[in-house]
């Protein structure tokens, strides 16, 4: 009985705190993405024109470690029974990627374009949950920020 109470409390805590945190995070991501629209990040390395005059080129990176909430973890566990797309993990990873790219862009400051964007994802720390699920993931984005000569 006691176990059940703990389970239900964790579940509802995860559900409410988790969804509040997620919607708040998405709002902040969307706002900052709009602000940084004038600094494009491209995966191509040879994006610049031949005659472009470059003032500065440097490596920029941004990273974030993000954790899933208890409710979603249980939900994903249930999903394992039926198969199919695991939406709860999808939003977790989507948030982390977009946050990492945003941090990278913020580090680039006054640059004009970010070339050769690479995004890397790795799983860290399975300790919080003994089952073999993703406890938390790290996403890192990096690229070369190029500043062009102002015409």
């Amino acid at each position: 009985m006691q176990d059940l109470i703990v389970f239900v409390v964790l579940l509802s805590l995860g559900y409410f705190a988790g969804s509040v945190a997620e919607s708040r995070h998405y709002r902040s991501i969307k706002r900052r993405e709009r602000e940084l629209l004038n600094l494009p990040a491209v995966t191509a390395a040879d994006f610049l024109d031949e005659g472009a005059e470059v003032v500065d080129a440097r490596l920029v990176h941004g990273s974030v470690v993000i954790s899933i909430d208890y409710f979603k973890r249980i939900l994903a566990g249930l999903r394992n029974l039926f198969g199919g797309e695991v939406n709860s993990y999808l939003t977790l990873i989507d948030r982390a990627r977009r946050e990492a790219v945003l941090r990278m862009k913020e580090e680039a400051g006054g640059a004009d374009v970010i070339l050769n964007l690479r995004i890397e994802t790795s799983v860290i720390g399975r300790n919080a949950d003994r089952r073999k699920t993703v406890g938390s993931i790290e996403v890192m984005a990096y690229g070369t920020a190029v500043t062009l000569k102002r015409g």
Binding site: H25, V64, V65, I66, S67, Y70, R73, L92, S136
Partner: peptide
Amino acid sequence: LKNIVGGELKGYT
């Protein structure tokens, strides 16, 4: 603790 409510783990970052 953060694994219950979800969100960014700033210490790890």
